[in-house]
Each structure stands twice: as structure tokens, then as C-alpha cells.
Design a protein around this nucleic acid. Structure first.
Length: 375
DNA sequence: AGCGTGTGTATAAGACTCGT
DNA sequence: ACGAGTCTTATACACACGCT
């Protein structure tokens, strides 16, 4: 029996063939590769297969939130938030220790006090070789709360003291500008502005950083930097949900990011690969799937076709540019842009309804027990 | 394009304890 | 109640390849 199945993704429709019966893995190279897992010989990159899998979780999780969340954002809202966690001083613990104790406890705190139910995290090396984390969570959290929680954990592991000691050292002869910090500040803030559709002014940002540094210096003078809190966190509230869905899943899974950072320093990525896992998420996210429908079934002399889906796919083939229909012996991909994403509603209304229902159900599956906060 | 394949070990997540 | 730990256990991660 041959079944062709269509997956309805946010930015594409993929049609592939499914055959009855299982397969066995007998290729020697493949089996040898599997041995690598046993030895821990990972290369530290996210593989294309893993990237696909992660994208599936994020696409469906975020899309379920965009479709079902409406109205006012409150403290109890289910709302995607993007957090970056960094170490404010040179890394002094093993990656696995940091993930287990520091990141793990941070996530526990988010769940306990900040209404976070589902999460996704990704670990990457920074240019300074420190590990750092990107997280996506499903609650609206104030940036000060995030900073407080992470800094308190950093404090337990000595990173705040080292950071403060470095500050004292840096300012031993009075105030001076930290050019490296200003540079990083400009980069980070410029990205933020660009994302918000504004044009960054480097000079303005530079002086903003200097002002920030001077204020920190002056506050620090009062108590020898004993209470200075580093900016170890960065947070984005994701307001334009639809466009951001693509942004996050792309950004978080882009191996080239790390690659290019390392190339700047003339080094190979292997010099600094993350030990152990490089990503993780709550179990519930792992159950998520794209909306799938059977297009046709062929069984000996019998065949059945889902006419509505078939017609919709034909319509896409007509309307889309040639380069947006990628056809192979075994699969077809229809790449959708903002405009032709509307075609489903128009040309296959009941399919569109089932598609919507899929995401309503996805949302209920994840948050059913929390529905009251949304009505 | 998706999916299934195998495996040692790191780890997620819950259970649990203990102190406040 | 909660924080801060320990302990247990089931799971899932890394990967390349072949097939469809």
C-alpha cells in the first residue's frame, strides 16, 4: 500500500510517500555512526535531522499560541518569551554542571514562580568560549525578574563575585570606558532596533553604553561593587507572533551562527564544542506534530483520492512560481509566501477549518487546564 | 522531504529529605 | 509553604544512511 501524505507547515506544504511495513538498518557506515553516540563523539553541531525535529516542535508550539491567544496580555497569559542567559565572568564549571545545576534550576524557578509550563533551550559557545543559552518560554515575564533569578543562581556558583572582582580591577585607577563592552552593547541593541523596524545610530548607542558604564561605576563606588548586578540576561517579548515564529525556529537552529563566530577568530568550531546536550525542551513539546492529511492511497487496483486536498495542491502548483515548487521522485514541497498562504481558506475551506482545529487542539493539549485565563 | 534504524550514557524530572 | 539539596529511574540524545 502506498499512501501520499501532505504536511501543512506554516511556510510550506510537503507531500511525501508512506509505505506500509517497517525497514531495517543494515548499512555498516550507518551502524558505525550509531556507535559514536556510545563514545560521546558528537561534533557539537545541531544535525540537519535534529534541526528539522526542533523546528517541528517550535513551529507547532508557537503557532498554537499565535492562533489561540487573543486579548490582553497579563501576568498569567500564555505568551512566548525569548530569553538569553550568559555568564558575566569566565566559565569555571563544566558545561554539564552548568546545564544540570544552573540552567536546570533556572527552569525550575520559571515553572514555580513565573507560570512557565513549556520551554525550549539551546546551548551555544560564545566567542569568549563561555557557554550561553537561548530559551523560549510560554509566559510573560518581566526582564527584571529574569535577571534577578539568573543572577541569584550565578551568585551561588561564584560568578557574581568574580564579575565584581573584575570590575574593581578594571576601575582601580578610576573610571574608564570598556570598549569591548560598548561594542557588544551596540551590536545587541542595534539588532533589537532593527527587529523593531527602526534604524540604529551607532554613535547614540555608543554613548548610551558609556553612560550605562559610568552609572554602574558610580553606583559601584559606594560599596566597592559589592552589590553590582551584571546584565547577564536579555529578554524579548514576542509581539509580532506570526513573523517571529519563523524567526525563532530559524535563529535557534542555525549552526552557521556559531560557525561564523569561530571563523572570525580563525578557529575551528571543534575547539569549543559544548559538552553533552546542546538543546532540550519540555516533554509536552515533543508530542507536537504538523497537521497532516492523506492525499491519496493506492492499494493494488484500488485507489482513493482526497479531492479537496488534491485540488488545493493543484491550485498551488498553478499559482506558485516554478522555483517555489520543489519536485522530486519521492516528494514535493510547495513553498508559501505571505500572499499564497491565504489560498487554503479560499480554495479548501474545510481543509482550512481542520488546519485551524489542529492548532486549537494543540493549544488545548498543551494548556487545556489553563483555559480560564484566556476567556 | 520524512522516517526508521541502534546504543551508551547524560540527563530530565519527579520523588524524596531536611531545614527554615 | 519553599529552598536546597540527594537520589532514582526512565528516557532520549547524538549521528549517517537507505528507502520511499
Amino acid at each position: 500500500m502506498i499512501e501520499s501524505i501532505a504536511l501543512f507547515k506554516p511556510h510550506s506544504v510537503v507531500v511525501y510517500q508512506s509505505f506500509e511495513g517497517g525497514r531495517t538498518q543494515e548499512n555498516a557506515a550507518s551502524l558505525e555512526n550509531l556507535e559514536k553516540g556510545a563514545k560521546g563523539d558528537y561534533n557539537g553541531y545541531m544535525s540537519p535531522a535534529t534541526r528539522r525535529q526542533v523546528k517541528k516542535y517550535l513551529d507547532n508550539w508557537l503557532l498554537s499560541m499565535t492562533i489561540t491567544t487573543t486579548g490582553k496580555i497579563t501576568r498569567n497569559s500564555i505568551y512566548p518569551t525569548f530569553i538569553t542567559l550568559t555568564l558575566p565572568a569566565a566559565q569555571a564549571h563544566d558545561d554539564n554542571d552548568i546545564k544540570r545545576n544552573m540552567l536546570g534550576y533556572f527552569i525550575t524557578q520559571l515553572k514555580r514562580y513565573h507560570h512557565v509550563k513549556n520551554y525550549f533551550w539551546r546551548a551555544e559557545p560564545q566567542q569568549n568560549d563561555n557557554i550561553h543559552f537561548h530559551l523560549v518560554v510560554d509566559a510573560y515575564i518581566h526582564h527584571a525578574q529574569v535577571k534577578k533569578a539568573w543572577n541569584s543562581i550565578l551568585d551561588q556558583y561564584g560568578y557574581l563575585e568574580t564579575y565584581r572582582q573584575n570590575l574593581r580591577e578594571h576601575y582601580r585607577a578610576g573610571f574608564q570606558i570598556n570598549g569591548q563592552e560598548a561594542k557588544q552593547y551596540i551590536k545587541r541593541e542595534a539588532e533589537k532596533l532593527t527587529r523593531a523596524g527602526k534604524k540604529p545610530n551607532e554613535k547614540v548607542l555608543y554613548w548610551a553604553s558609556v553612560t550605562q558604564q559610568r552609572q554602574r561605576y558610580e553606583r559601584g563606588q559606594r560599596d566597592n561593587f559589592n552589590t553590582t548586578q551584571p546584565n547577564s540576561t536579555d529578554i524579548h517579548k514576542l509581539k509580532k507572533l506570526r513573523s517571529i515564529t519563523a524567526y525563532i525556529s530559524k535563529y535557534l537552529t542555525k549552526a552557521n551562527d556559531v560557525d561564523s563566530q569561530m571563523k572570525e577568530k580563525g578557529r575551528d568550531f571543534m575547539d569549543r564544542k559544548i559538552n553533552g546536550r546542546i538543546w532540550g525542551c519540555s516533554d509536552d513539546l515533543k508530542t507536537l506534530t504538523y497537521h497532516a492529511e492523506t492525499v491519496a492511497i493506492e492499494d493494488f487496483d484500488m485507489s482513493t483520492t482526497n479531492d479537496e486536498v488534491k485540488n488545493y495542491l493543484d491550485k498551488l502548483a498553478q499559482v506558485l512560481k516554478a522555483e517555489d515548487v520543489i519536485k522530486d521522485e519521492n516528494f514535493t514541497v510547495y513553498r508559501l509566501n505571505v500572499e499564497n498562504r491565504k489560498l487554503m481558506q479560499e480554495h479548501a475551506p474545510s481543509l482550512h477549518h481542520r488546519y485551524q482545529t489542529h492548532y486549537n487542539n494543540t493549544f488545548l493539549q498543551l494548556y487545556g487546564s489553563l483555559q480560564t485565563s484566556f476567556t
